[in-house]
Simulated assay, not measured.
Amino acid sequence: MPRFLLAAALLALGGNACAYPADTAPVSVTLRGHHYSVELATNEAAREHGLMMRTSLAADHGMLFVFPDTAPRGFWMKNTLIPLDILYFDAERKLVSAQVDVQPCKADPCPVYPSAGPARYVLELSAGTAARIGVRNGDTLAIEGRLGTVD
């Protein structure tokens, strides 16, 4: 088989391998007109690990924590190496509170950053994002894509 045909066949197969199955398609959110690609944390293990040990987070990326219920939430920065904005949203996806410019934890125990009200969704973005886009309580979070099973 000529090399260019082999290369074309491999590219075609590789392109199909990169396609996302319906249940793992990328999820994104929009807040105040700004679009972010997000990783999901929809189970206890993923929510506990969060963005730990990351050394960077792109300006247009974040992590969306989805809980099975609406309740007061508290996050901490143990083993989180990058400063973050932590945005808490209720079941209607309205912003109930924000903890902004939260710095990595260097103490033990690490402080907890609570929500000011019950939350079901928590969005973590690079520190300074909330101020840059003018986030305010009551802002609505739009979620595009399938969240899958939440437990």
Rank of each mutant, 00 (worst) to 15 (best):
G33E: 07
A22C: 08
L57R: 03
A17R: 07
G15I: 10
M52K: 09
V27S: 07
E48T: 12
R47P: 00
M52I: 06
R47I: 00
L57Y: 02
Y36F: 13
E39P: 01
A25L: 06
L13A: 15
A22H: 10
A17Y: 12
M52Q: 15
S37C: 03
A19R: 14
G15Q: 13
H35M: 06
M53I: 04
H49E: 09
A59F: 00
R47Y: 00
G33D: 08
D23F: 12
S37H: 09
R54Q: 14
A46Y: 00
A17T: 13
A45W: 03
R54N: 12
P21E: 08
V29A: 09
T30H: 03
V27C: 04
N16M: 15
H49L: 13
S37D: 12
E39R: 13
A25F: 01
A45V: 11
V29M: 06
A17M: 14
L51M: 07
L57M: 07
A46S: 13
L13R: 05
P21S: 14
L13I: 15
A41Q: 01
H35V: 13
G33T: 10
S37G: 06
A41N: 02
L31F: 04
A17G: 14
V38W: 00
C18A: 11
D23P: 03
Y20Q: 15
G14D: 07
V29R: 04
T42Q: 05
P26A: 13
D23M: 07
T42M: 03
